[in-house]
């Protein structure tokens, strides 16, 4: 892949820069934060941004920068896990249904239609209401909810690719179904699968933020971007900076990845 060749050169590079910056902050957060993200200090409650506390402090006097660094890490781990669960299951389902077709495919796709017509957060809420809130349940819930979207992408690629002559050729050579599916066809789905992994990551970040914002995701005192926004909501009047830092972090994350995936999708 040669990024220099696509139409949105500038945006692609901007996306790469934003993402590198955000990733740098988050990765640093795993090893080092300026302050202990959970250390409360009553004297510092709701203090505005200063040189000591670049993004200010929250209502417990915790350093917001440190909390954003840690919280974004939590959000990222959850989002990556969600994408992993959704994409791996989705790929298997999509490959099987797309390749074999028939009534099994029909049934699964009907189910898919129903599931994808729901907003994913609504489904996640059903899941959470059944199994209860918490990080692991969110990963499981959103992961499963993401299965249909990946299944759909992979399935439609498989439907096109299985009619291609190289697949017929492989059959003539005597390759078995599973070899054809996973050795011959699957590598060819990367073109659409990789951008959709990036988009999926974005959706997962947004979904985690949404659920935690509603108090149904990550539970305190653990910090996540959505959790922080939820806490910040009550202090919008007194310390608006509390909301801005995690909010901007979400925007930059999502923006960076969508610019990159936009650039990838533009390639021929």
């Amino acid at each position: 892949m040669q990024p220099g060749k696509n139409k949105h050169d500038f945006n692609y590079i901007l996306g790469l820069s934003i993402t590198s910056l955000v990733l740098l902050v988050v990765l640093t957060g795993f090893f080092y934060t300026p302050y202990d993200p959970n250390k409360m200090d009553a004297a510092l409650r709701n203090s505005p941004p200063s040189l000591l506390h670049l993004f200010g402090t929250d209502n417990f006097g915790r350093d917001i920068l440190s909390r954003v660094m840690k919280g974004a890490g939590t959000t990222y781990i959850i989002a990556v896990s969600i994408v992993f669960v959704g994409a791996s299951l989705g790929t298997i389902v999509g490959a099987l249904t797309g390749y074999f077709g028939g009534w099994f495919d029909e049934a699964i796709m009907r189910l898919n239609d129903v599931l994808t017509s729901f907003p994913s957060i609504l489904l996640a809420l059903v899941f959470v209401s059944v199994f209860g809130p918490g990080s692991y349940n969110i990963i499981l819930a959103l992961g499963i909810i993401f299965v249909p979207s990946y299944a759909r992408v992979v399935r439609s690629e498989f439907i096109v690719l299985k009619e291609r002559d190289f697949v017929k050729n492989a059959k003539l050579m005597g390759a078995g179904n599973f070899r054809i599916m996973f050795v011959h066809i699957l590598p060819n789905t990367g073109r659409v699968l990789i951008p959709s992994l990036l988009i999926g990551f974005n959706n997962a970040v947004l979904a985690e933020a949404g659920l935690s914002f509603l108090g149904l995701g990550v539970q305190p005192p653990q910090a996540s971007l959505g959790r922080m926004l939820s806490e910040a909501q009550g202090y919008l009047l007194d310390s608006p900076w509390y909301a801005i830092a995690p909010g901007v972090m979400i925007i930059l994350t999502v923006l960076g990845f969508s610019l990159i995936s936009g650039g990838l999708a533009n390639e021929k």
Partner: peptide, 18 residues
Amino acid sequence: SRPQMVFQDPYGSLNPMK
């Protein structure tokens, strides 16, 4: 002695990722 086939569009009959 499985018969083999040569297709119209060689771009389609050769796996593009290999």
